[in-house]
Design a protein around this nucleic acid. Structure first.
Lengths: 228, 228
DNA sequence: TTATACTGCGATCAGCGTTCGCAGTATAAG
DNA sequence: CTTATACTGCGAACGCTGATCGCAGTATAA
């Protein structure tokens, strides 16, 4: 099996020999369970194989490398999205709602935020998501590439906000406690008065909800189309 | 040395014993050179130590773990930013220019894009950058936390656009060729007509420059302040 | 002068991703 | 029906990783 065939373009079984005992989806879901419980770093080939009751080498019948497994995981969680809703009359509202659903996927699977996005990670469900998002913008009088740009930017913002919310909710690690102490020290020593003031202006637990306005502004700004 | 002290808050030498032979900055720069040449995955403790002519265990006198080294690397590259320019009369122009400079840092050091951003990665230079950015917005009649939100969102967009440009310029790997072929196949099979149309509408090499408008819209949108 | 904190780093541990190659299975070919 | 061979599962092994232990020399504090 060549490097030059994307994992989702490969057939799941050969034309001879026994039927495989597992599927790529099953392996991806086993990996997702581990990532959900213990983070992405815990998703080793050995750990995934053990959770399936097999040896690590057997996974290489389904994926070429761990990177393929990560691709499968990232795409598999998008199955949680309900993409069949018909667009309303307000494409910006629809895009904001879709962005909110994608953000919710990230909140359920925080390890997604540890996966550097790569254009090469687009699987069937990611492609369905893009098609759906393009559907929301179907009638806009702008070029396709502008629409794709909007989608890329919105995805990036979704991850950013998800990261923010995840950090706010997660138990504080030693590392984060150390950083907070460090920031407090810097704020206290007078060398960064604007930062000190801004931090003082940011009460804990008093989170802004700027997700929706951010998505709105970006969508309307890039397409040049006002909300109606 | 406790986990609970951030790497940049730790003294560089003890009060007794020989002076250390190296500095954290020197180690960070050795690591950056490796990352620039061969990517982040090549930055192993062994590789960094070998490039410094020492053994891997000696690095643990300077950092507690590889994660600390990554923190130092991420902060060290921000030294390339020239932050002393006085603000002009147009805060949005200034913010866009600053964002462009930060994007240029990412383009010179593409491995930054493989580092999941963490709030705990903020070192002295990152803090200087935030202070500077707050300075550009010093006179805006909005809360400090809104300003911090703008900075967070802009940073996220900077990374997104840098990733995009990096992908456009990098030699195409087998993986990316496979993905492109896969997208082509999906576009050809008729199941995603909007995507097919959008891709057809996106001529290679005909990149949109929506970086500046995106930053503008986000900045003005979040602060509620029109460009003037 | 002595105690001891500090430094450098080899040796070692435990784990990782991945490949090789064996053996059994099931389909294609004759 | 028999044979060839593509296919599958996976143990063993390779080469690499991050990190810790503990020794020995150094330099400051007591």
């Amino acid at each position: 099996m060549s490097d030059s065939v994307a994992v989702w373009a490969r057939p799941e079984r050969g034309r001879r020999g026994p039927a495989p005992e597992r599927s790529r989806d099953q392996i991806a879901r086993a990996a997702i369970a581990i990532a959900d419980a213990d983070g992405l770093a815990a998703v080793s080939m050995r750990e995934v194989a053990a959770s399936l009751g097999t040896g690590p080498a057997s996974l290489y019948r389904y994926v070429r490398a761990r990177e393929d497994l990560l691709d499968l995981m990232a795409d598999a969680v998008l199955a949680e999205l309900e993409l069949s809703a018909a667009p309303s009359t307000d494409w910006v509202d629809d895009l904001v709602a879709l962005a909110g659903e994608v953000k919710a996927v990230h909140l359920r699977h925080p390890w997604l935020l540890d996966l550097p996005p790569q254009p090469s990670r687009l699987g069937p469900r990611a492609i369905d998501l893009i098609e759906h998002a393009l559907g929301l913008m179907r009638h806009l009088p702008v070029q396709g590439r502008v629409k794709l740009e909007v989608i890329g930017v919105v995805n990036s913002l979704v991850a950013q906000f998800a990261r923010h919310e995840t950090a706010a909710e997660a138990p504080v690690s030693d590392r984060q406690a150390a950083q907070t102490a460090y920031l407090g020290k810097v704020a206290a020593d007078g060398s960064h008065p604007l930062l000190a003031a801004a931090l003082a202006d940011t009460a804990p637990g008093d989170a802004l909800d700027v997700f929706e306005p951010t998505i709105r502004h970006v969508a309307m700004g890039l397409t040049g189309i006002a909300h109606r």
